[in-house]
């Protein structure tokens, strides 16, 4: 029987996968992949609560905005990555240390 908790567990596992990807990878694009996973976990939670707790559709609207923000983030993020690659010829996150010193 599927209930709220099964969806929450799926979204929780998705979130953890995203966290591990962001921390373990050193490639900027791979980190962006992890970000997508985390955003999806959040959006899934909104939809699950809408279905099982209060049937008003505000949660769906929030999920829509999350998807919109994910798209915008991917576009700008990848533009930055490509620009970074043009300048540094690398997409390793450890090469982005200009602001550190």
């Amino acid at each position: 029987m599927i209930s709220l908790s099964s969806y929450l567990i799926v979204s929780f596992a998705l979130f953890l996968c995203g966290i591990v990807v962001i921390i373990a990878r050193k490639n900027i694009i791979a980190m962006l992949l992890g970000m997508e996973l985390i955003l999806n976990a959040g959006a899934l939670n909104f939809a699950a609560y809408t279905r099982f707790v209060n049937q008003n559709l505000d949660g769906h609207v929030m999920s829509l905005f999350i998807i919109i923000i994910a798209a915008a983030e991917a576009a700008v993020g990848l533009a930055i990555v490509i620009r970074f690659f043009q300048i540094k010829e690398s997409i390793h996150i450890d090469d982005a240390v200009e602001l550190q010193s």
Partner: peptide, 19 residues
């Protein structure tokens, strides 16, 4: 030497601890 961009055991361990 750089950390390989797809991660090593070390980075995965850190990731696992954080998660």
């Amino acid at each position: 030497n750089k950390i390989p961009s797809m991660g090593t055991t070390k980075t995965y361990t850190i990731g696992a601890i954080v998660s």
